[in-house]
Design a protein around this nucleic acid. Sequence first.
RNA 1: GGCCCUAUCGUCUAACGGUUAGGACGAAAGCUUUUCAAGCUUUAAACCGGGGUUCGAUUCCCCGUAGGGUCACCA
Length: 447
Amino acid sequence: MTKVITRFAPSPTGVLHIGSVRTALYSWLYARQNNGKFILRIEDTDKERSKKEFEDNIIDGLNWLGLTHDEFFRQSDRSVFYKEKIIELIAKGAVYVSKEEPKEPGGRAEVIRFKNPNRVVTFEDVVRGDISFDTTELGDFVIAKDFDTPLYHFAVVVDDFEMGVTHVIRGDDAISNTPRQILIQEALGAPRPIYTHLPMILAPDKSKLSKRHGALAVTEYHEEGYLPEAILNFVALMGWNPGNDQEIISLEEMVKLFTLPKVQKSAAVFNIDKLKWLNKHYMKLLSADRAGEEILTRFPPMLQTKAHSDVKVFEKVVPVILDHISVFGEVRALAEAGEYGYFFEDPAYAPEKLLWKDEPEPMLAAEKLQKILALIVDIDNAFFTPETIKTAIWDYATEAGRGSVLWPMRYALSGREKSPDPFMLANILGKEATLRRITHAIELLRA
RNA sequence: GGCCCUAUCGUCUAACGGUUAGGACGAAAGCUUUUCAAGCUUUAAACCGGGGUUCGAUUCCCCGUAGGGUCACCA
């Protein structure tokens, strides 16, 4: 049995986006699960539109995701091979140099055309079955501008042939390219690879995925704080499933479970909410150190300084922050909105905010806080945990009315409408700051 | 327009002739220590339409309809 060889062959005319990632992933998976070879081939025969920065972006994206390739090629390095094949085909009479009037400005007076045998080509697609095209309408199509400038269709066929590609896995926008590539293959005497055309991934409005519709470059997802595991898991599920209800699938599991024939026939719509859900799942699996690092780099400089000078507090804050976000990038906006400041600095607030909605009496609120103070002041600093604090206060709160006790306490500690619960807060802040903030609140209420 | 492809909840999907059409995201409701988040429980939500084939069609066939792809000296 011949070794499986797949390839991912992007043209560097744009960034690596979600759709391409899925194509790359499926090709990669298929090669890996068959102990085959995965080739990355940059198709830059269009010198005008190909850009090095896009090539870099594609390579960076794939590396970040861990979709490593076994071999790398760049078509612009391979003109000699194409030239050789053109000459060979001319000798065979399958291709000819055509002298003609340029149809467009900038067109050439001489191009190289393929002599179309004008017949029906049928090929088997792994996900769609037999597909037939009458190639007559293609005419004698151009395969190269000149001997040194091959066009896409020709370069693809020559490369797949020479690189021994056994399985072509690509987007279904290439489906109508297939017949003419088969024609070239046959002229070359090349074996026909097994074709698998993947359905498109659409934007939420069902239009073609584009940057305007929230489809970012993979590198941008990286910057926003998405995890590679989440991206991979997400794209794997767009167009494929393991055959059961499993939704969380690691790359290693995919290698075992993936099957080409189970790939979906119809297009899928990109669903950012599901991606976020997956990302949150994978974020929870991160080590505290790693999560802390991701969060810290997204703090504004001032907050970073505070976090550095109060590492103990920051370490306790990390899981709390993690609990409220789906993507690390959210930290930036939250921090700027003042969501985290109170962890490190006593908050300022209007005193009436301390009042519970069902008990708007400053003196009563002050009384409650005073009682809390008395209940926690004797807890040993070393045992100032959410559990002990809760135990100390709980019975009293239940008796006096939880809202009337816990709301002022929480507000005194955070100065915010929304925050973690007061016991967690007290633990994060530490005993000293907790006592100080509650005392301050009492003063405000009595003023 | 020609050619090609596709069609199950809002979205991702399961079902491979017989099911109360299942799961997940999202949504709604409830519970969970006062707020928020998380978590748990529950609910609403789909077979594009019409013909066949068959004892029986979401499933097979045909025709519509809708959507997408492609028709370069781009890839």
